[in-house]
Simulated assay, not measured.
Amino acid sequence: MCDTMDLPFETYLPVWNKLTAAQRQQISGSTARRTVKKGTILHNGSMDCTGLLIVKSGQLRAYILSEAGREITLYRLFDLDICLFSASCIMRSIQFEVTIEAEKDTDLLVIPAKIYKGIMEESAPAANFTNEIMASRFSEVMWLLEQILWKSFDKRLAGFLLEESALEGTDFLRITHEIIGSHLGNPREVVTRMLRYFQSEGMVRLSRGTVEILDRGKLHGLCTE
């Protein structure tokens, strides 16, 4: 359990000042700080309800896994983002299994699901705040669905490479074709074929475990056509 002086909750929970003193004490007295390494699975359908995760620093990935073992990224979580799906036991209407993985070394605050559920049942501001987060996440999932249904794979891949470049602050991406496929929900072989096409068009340069962006303009033009 953390020293409450190390947790400026108003920074992480915008609803903090609308809670009662007793509710704030419940949260500050039960919240734990957790540091995880890249690749750590924080939650999946077979695990207990992990609790409400708040990203202090780092990066998480939420994805679903098909029966055939294929992954597709639903959304990512960055500094100050809140993960509700890790506390899905407080939202019985959620019927699908989401896996939460650390994409980078990540520093987290973990509010126990039981504590947060009790406060949410007592506090209209907390309930409204939770619903806003959930609506935002579902909007991201719906956006993803639209991309899969209506955008060709070359456009989705171009957009993904540009997004990765922005996140990492470099055009030299240390990422495998398999990992790209996991994000986009496509087999590695499909990713490899399209990347080789991009390379033949001078948009990227490929080497083992890396993709270097050579022509951002062409990629941007492709994904916005």
Results as ranks from 00 to 15, higher is better:
residue 159 G to E: 01
residue 170 T to L: 11
residue 154 D to Y: 00
residue 160 F to C: 04
residue 164 E to D: 10
residue 177 H to R: 10
residue 150 W to K: 13
residue 177 H to Q: 14
residue 159 G to N: 04
residue 141 V to Y: 08
residue 171 D to Q: 05
residue 152 S to V: 05
residue 176 T to F: 01
residue 160 F to I: 01
residue 154 D to E: 09
residue 155 K to A: 10
residue 157 L to E: 02
residue 158 A to D: 08
residue 145 L to W: 10
residue 179 I to Y: 04
residue 154 D to N: 05
residue 161 L to K: 02
residue 144 L to K: 12
residue 173 L to H: 02
residue 148 I to T: 06
residue 173 L to D: 00
residue 159 G to Y: 01
residue 176 T to M: 01
residue 159 G to V: 01
residue 172 F to Q: 08
residue 173 L to T: 02
residue 167 L to M: 12
residue 151 K to M: 13
residue 144 L to I: 07
residue 141 V to W: 04
residue 178 E to Y: 07
residue 165 S to E: 10
residue 176 T to S: 15
residue 153 F to Y: 15
residue 147 Q to P: 07
residue 170 T to E: 08
residue 164 E to R: 15
residue 149 L to W: 03
residue 141 V to E: 07
residue 144 L to C: 04
residue 164 E to S: 09
residue 157 L to Y: 04
residue 141 V to L: 11
residue 158 A to H: 06
residue 176 T to Q: 03
residue 175 I to P: 01
residue 147 Q to Y: 08
residue 153 F to V: 06
residue 151 K to D: 13
residue 156 R to D: 11
residue 165 S to A: 11
residue 178 E to R: 14
residue 155 K to R: 15
residue 154 D to C: 00
residue 154 D to G: 02
residue 178 E to H: 11
residue 170 T to I: 10
residue 166 A to C: 06
residue 173 L to Q: 02
residue 154 D to F: 03
residue 179 I to Q: 00
residue 144 L to P: 00
residue 171 D to T: 11
residue 178 E to M: 09
residue 177 H to N: 14
residue 173 L to R: 01
residue 148 I to H: 03
residue 161 L to W: 04
residue 141 V to K: 05
residue 143 W to Y: 08
residue 173 L to I: 03
residue 155 K to M: 11
residue 177 H to D: 10
residue 152 S to H: 06
residue 151 K to F: 13
residue 161 L to I: 05
residue 163 E to Y: 08
residue 160 F to T: 00
residue 166 A to W: 10
residue 148 I to L: 12
residue 162 L to S: 06
residue 147 Q to A: 12
residue 175 I to Y: 01
residue 139 S to V: 05
residue 158 A to Q: 03
residue 150 W to E: 14
residue 164 E to F: 07
residue 174 R to C: 10
residue 139 S to L: 11
residue 140 E to K: 15
residue 163 E to M: 10
residue 172 F to H: 11
residue 146 E to V: 07
